[in-house]
Design a protein around this nucleic acid. Structure first.
Lengths: 248, 248
DNA sequence: CGTCGGTTTGATCTAGTTCAACCGCCGTGG
DNA sequence: CCACGGCGGTTGAACTAGATCAAACCGACG
């Protein structure tokens, strides 16, 4: 992991902000957030960004790349609870409750904007709308977790896998990450298994079925989504749109 | 459902606030929250408090009683995502994102404090610490969901049931709801099944095993926890303490 | 060229589902 | 006062989705 103290990208010129999924900020809000930012953190695939039990001093926003949040049982069984894409906050729990109850690991090389957690209360004081935005993002995370829980608790393996890939594809698409030729989701089957609550072998067999139905293709150690609409349907999901959200 | 316009309990005399789990509020904060409160809502067992897809005008805090949040698939499969106990916020999603993505139903007769969602931004503006508190509560909900997801995804039926009952007992205990003679959790086995992601019959058989181990007892259509520590251990859980939290 | 992480496949096993009754209790209507 | 129906809980038998075990494959990399 490598930290640069000087912000490389000033928030005013943040490439993410140009995307239509993010709500426009006023010049004043932008200037404040830019001052709020302490620097950037560069990580590579497999790097641990935060660990369970830790009292992190940092709050991050993912600027580029993929990451995931997970929890583990003593005996090693692991559950991935959600994925993190550009614009997502990382480490809010440490800033509120004080201690992380989950770990975060990078799925690809990634860049994070770094904030100091002690400054969060100050953000709420000086910019209440931004404080509200943080709550908004926490609500969105809660919504995603509800959906994951519904999926793991009540969907069949086939539906579950379809749902997960459909969601990841949709989220990434909204961020323009699924453009280019053969864009893929940089995930291993072990990650999928740990997300779906299935064994590795059964996950593999389920993915083969999705591939046989021409919904996905596996190559270069990653998943290419061939038919997003088909996946959504296979999941029995009435895929809700990505709502416009704040970017802090 | 029955609404009373006049607050029955002024926040300054709220019986919940006396409990050590809630952080003390300043007189000023208390006065503000009391003005913020619009009235009370009385519901009885089985009443729907909020429904998926609805744009609720209200934000609630549960004052007494039990409730639960759930989502359902088109074909009726239902997943309970979490339980709500006194002090918990209900309907925050509607106040932030605008639309509820889950339903809320009362498990027992209950009393809710009613707030108007349009006043939430005003709360953030005039009382940033309270805004921060709302975020705090949202973070706590996220933490609970993470744990539920870990449970449903990775624990066996036996561990899962033990975990759920241990958590509910612990949460209720912190609120002084598990005192008296033979206090119970007012839940049916169908609720448990829909929470655990198991079928009703298997849930029943699993509960019998917990009862055979003298960890719980079923009577009066409710669950009595006989051995909280035993349950926690059966769950393979290192039960974290209930943290001091805000009450809005 | 051996090793290692990720993927694949088949065989066997089992945790949990589904189906089908049945029981006790309580509230309702005749 | 009694019959009936529905809800919640209980139990056993048959079944299957998914787990576990075992082995092999394949490309990358030192």
């Amino acid at each position: 992991m490598h930290t640069t103290n000087r912000p490389r990208v000033a928030c005013e010129h943040c490439p993410l902000r140009k995307l239509p999924v993010f709500r426009p900020f006023t010049a004043e809000e932008l200037a404040y957030v830019s001052r709020f930012k302490r620097g950037e953190l560069l990580v590579k695939t497999g790097d641990l960004i935060l660990t369970e039990g830790q009292h992190s001093e940092q709050l991050y926003t993912l600027l580029s790349g993929w990451a995931f949040r997970y929890k583990a049982l003593e005996d090693g069984r692991r559950q991935i609870v959600n994925y993190l894409l550009p614009g997502d906050l990382i480490g809010l729990q440490a800033s509120t409750i004080g201690e992380m109850q989950h770990s975060v690991e990078a799925l690809s090389s990634a860049v994070l904007c770094v904030f100091r957690r002690e400054q969060v209360p100050e953000l709420f004081r000086s910019h209440p709308e931004l404080g509200f935005d943080v709550t908004w993002l926490a609500s969105r995370e809660e919504r995603m977790l509800d959906e994951n829980l519904l999926s793991v608790g009540r969907r069949s393996a086939f539906e579950r896998a379809a749902y997960l890939l459909a969601v990841l594809h949709r989220r990434a698409s909204a961020l323009g990450m699924m453009k280019g030729a053969r864009p893929t989701i940089p995930i291993t089957q072990q990650h999928l298994a740990d997300t779906l609550g299935l064994s590795l072998v059964h996950t593999n067999k389920t993915l083969k079925r999705l591939a046989a139905a021409n919904l996905i293709r596996w190559h270069d150690h990653a998943c290419e989504v061939l038919d997003p609409a088909g996946l959504t349907e296979a999941a029995g999901w009435s895929g809700s749109r990505e709502t416009i959200r704040p970017l802090i």
